[in-house]
Design a protein around this nucleic acid. Structure first.
Lengths: 252, 252
DNA sequence: CGGCCCATTGACTATGGTCAATATAAGTGG
DNA sequence: CCACTTATATTGACCATAGTCAATGGGCCG
């Protein structure tokens, strides 16, 4: 089934059977047969921090799963305004099954590694793999929820609440455990984006982001190191600042 | 296969085979067999204008397709703020396959009729009907796009741009033909929601909505009748006012 | 050490929010 | 069908939050 060349190629890729991303990604519901099909079609791609993964209106020739790193989807307006409309974390799906064009700009916020599939190949795989299909629906429903939670943040929250919500979101993504754990003790996270990226995500300007973070610092809710590490010294204050009950407004 | 009682019951429901909603809804990709299964499980429900379809955190016992009317999904904040996060038009799917709780408040903006299925029954149908599954994924991807387009509106557009964007969105939804048609001549649409609902949708306050509409009226871009019909007298001005190229920012 | 990028801070402005009064439309019951 | 009531929309005056423009500061890399 595989000739020698293919085998060599396969050798550089971790087999799906031992992939530690599997429980979180589109392959989570695949059976052995489906995994085999995916395995033989996959290839890895790397994108460096700051580089563009896909330009808006481009045909993205592949789809895939983020294996490591974080990317951001942005929607652009002609006059230069732009709005980040989603973050891609490890396990998240990149691409639009059944669609050609990406209406977004996709940028790597950190170095990103992608387990990728040629678009047409993937379309065929999708038809033949109900487990893949089911899991993808599940994931897209989660994305939809996340996106709608974000709408609440952009439509109704103050600048301070938006920053707090973002910090909580990052904490939540980072520690997939019970979220209430965050309340317990000082906890830190790496802020993997610039003030400008935060502003584009939160519908603010970078100066406002900076001011609000300074304010959170003055209120002794967080401490920000050089290197952009945020230490949450007052988790409860952060929750209060986000303006919603516990896990209510966290874009899952 | 059907006993007399079933037949009588069926008689009050239009059979799926002649359903004129089919091409737009989750059944669009179903084969005859799948349609049969759906047909025998469906029932119709009505919700009056202004009534709540589902409360947040409630378990919605059914899912379904909007047959007529328009509903709105809202996300609430404890202190009373709320943000509309989506509109359900005829053909749209109501409910969350595989999920129990609705995190939203769902309200009927007009009288609404729903072709519904018991939640557990639908889950089973979904597993056995690949056509249904595939179409649902497609629809959820569209919803995701729409939601993300909305993020751009809330995050980066001015009050005037938001109103214009909403009007264009309604026009687009109303005339599913080529959108560029809208540019050609004066065209009208029914504004099926209050200033407050618009405000909650656009992340504004109702006074701001009112003021911006007055301004559009003063600029002779629209004319609003009593009865809330909007006549677009200057379609090009409306497009300009929305702040994006033609169909760029319309939540499909 | 110097230059560059990014973050911070300040002073001022503008957009939209708030509170309140008025006007218009939509129901309701005689 | 018309008075009366209630809900919704409009407009005004004032205010607050975040945006704008600009200067300064700090970290990082050559």
């Amino acid at each position: 089934m595989h000739d020698l060349k293919d085998s060599q190629f396969d050798r550089v890729l971790p087999p799906c059977s031992i992939c530690n991303m599997r429980k979180d990604c589109m392959c989570a519901m695949c059976n052995a047969q489906e995994l085999d099909a995916l395995q033989s079609a996959k290839s890895y791609r790397s994108v460096e921090k700051g580089q563009v993964v896909a330009f808006p209106q481009d045909e993205l020739s592949y789809v895939g799963t983020i294996m490591s790193g974080i990317a951001v989807l942005s929607r652009l307006l002609e006059d230069g305004r732009h709005q980040n409309v989603g973050l891609l974390y490890p396990g998240d799906f990149l691409g639009r099954p059944g669609r050609k064009k990406m209406p977004f700009l996709v940028t790597a916020l950190t170095d990103v590694e992608i387990c990728s599939f040629e678009a047409e190949v993937f379309s065929r795989l999708l038809e033949e793999a109900p487990g893949l299909h089911a899991r993808l629906l599940e994931m897209m429903l989660d994305e939809l929820d996340a996106s709608r939670d974000w709408l609440l943040v952009l439509g109704r929250k103050t600048a301070r609440e938006r920053i707090c919500s973002l910090f909580l979101h990052i904490l939540y993504k980072q520690s997939r455990t019970q979220f209430s754990d965050v309340l317990q003790a000082p906890i830190a996270f790496q802020l993997f984006m610039s003030r400008e990226q935060m502003a584009d995500l939160l519908g603010l300007r970078l100066e406002t982001v900076s001011r609000q973070i300074s304010q959170l610092r003055a209120d002794e809710i967080v401490h920000v190191t050089s290197g952009n590490t945020v230490i949450v010294t007052d988790p409860h204050g952060l929750l209060e600042g986000a303006g919603n009950d516990a896990d209510g407004g966290l874009w899952a």
